[in-house]
Amino acid sequence: MAATHALPPAPPLQRPRVLVVGSAFASAAAVMIFVGLIGIYLAERANAIAAGEKWLPSEISIPLQQPNTILFTLLMSVVTMAWAVQAVANNDKVNSYLALGVTAVFGFSTIVMTTYLWSLMGADVAANTQSVLLYTITGAHMVMTILAIIFVGLMAFRALAGGFSARQHDGITAAALFWYAMVAVYALIWITIYVTK
């Protein structure tokens, strides 16, 4: 004899989080700017090497200490950003503010180190193609870093105002997404420009 089963009602449809979706698209677009720039850099470099020329002129010298310092600072900032997201999810306000603050400080120190690196490189933007590319790419990344710091700062203020809770913290997650994209872009710059040279 066939039996019927009374199934529980289906759960309500989960709608993707609006700010996170928007931030994901914005982050993807930002990354694509650098994919374009770095693609051009690598194409020019390959053409120069294929023609038997040296890519970086002798007057440009890119040390590794500063780029490595920036890389490790940003990697630490990934941890602190994740810490911030976790703290908000746990309704831990003190740790949230601490983590967001440290992340912003890491971002600021990245900017300082980048400008120091510019002074060490010996590249004159008005001198050659390589300098134009270097300053365009690293300058654009600095702008992205500033925007990421502003985003984190705005979300920190909203957190201070009690705008986030364990159940609803899209803003921090969105800021984290953009931050991770910024760090990923720097990793790409680090390997293609600073290491490969």
């Binding site: 677009a29 720039l37 051009i40």
Partner: peptide
């Protein structure tokens, strides 16, 4: 558009 317009921005920026 979100994948390709940024590359246009990259070109124009350069």
């Amino acid at each position: 558009w979100m994948l390709t317009l940024p590359v246009l921005v990259a070109n124009v920026l350069l």
